[in-house]
């Protein structure tokens, strides 16, 4: 379980993300990051959420980046070394590669999936571990997802309402 305390965080000089009340991210739930272009959803993922998750030994993080061509090339290189013959050409291949890699881990630790404007949420139906899904999209919204709304109150500040 991840808890982000309420408060303001300077993302870069001149732009602040304000969390209006503590944000709880727990396995078994999904969270929809909703907001206009430029409201700070990706910045929240990269500057706030991922630093909290990275380095944790009690969970896995599976992250699909927005406009993922650089991630795709990085995974191509990794696959060339560790899984020769595994072709990675598009987003669907990245999902397959990451899920296959995770399936080889013999434990029951939860996985936090973070999908920033992914084309599809490609979650295995038979996933054997607890899942926490955190995603942003302008195309789809899961009915069960809790909404975190990013509201730009000025060009300098966005407030995240849970």
């Amino acid at each position: 379980m991840i808890t982000l305390p309420a408060g303001k965080r300077e993302i870069w000089p001149g732009f602040t993300l304000a969390i209006d009340k503590p944000l709880l991210f727990q396995p078994g739930a999904s969270y929809y990051l909703k907001g206009a272009n430029g409201s700070g959803k990706s910045s929240f993922i990269h500057r706030v959420l991922l630093p909290e998750l990275n380095g944790r030994k009690d969970l896995y993080v599976l992250c699909l980046q927005q406009q993922m061509h650089l991630q795709l090339y990085a995974l191509k290189a990794q696959a060339a070394i560790f899984k020769p013959g595994f072709a990675i050409r598009e987003e669907g291949d990245v999902w397959r590669y990451l899920w296959q890699d995770l399936a080889e881990r013999q434990d029951e630790l939860p996985v936090y999936v973070i999908a920033d404007e992914a084309y599809n949420l490609d979650i295995p139906q038979d996933l054997q571990r607890p899942l926490c899904l955190i995603y942003s999209s302008h195309r789809y919204q899961l009915e069960a997802a809790q909404i975190l709304e990013f509201v730009q109150v000025s060009t300098q500040e966005t407030v995240i309402h849970a």
Partner: peptide
Amino acid sequence: ITAKKLNQDDKLDALSGGQKVV
């Protein structure tokens, strides 16, 4: 369109994903 001022010296990585598409 974006309510964001832009000039030629601005760094591209300061744009959001959607702003890059715009």
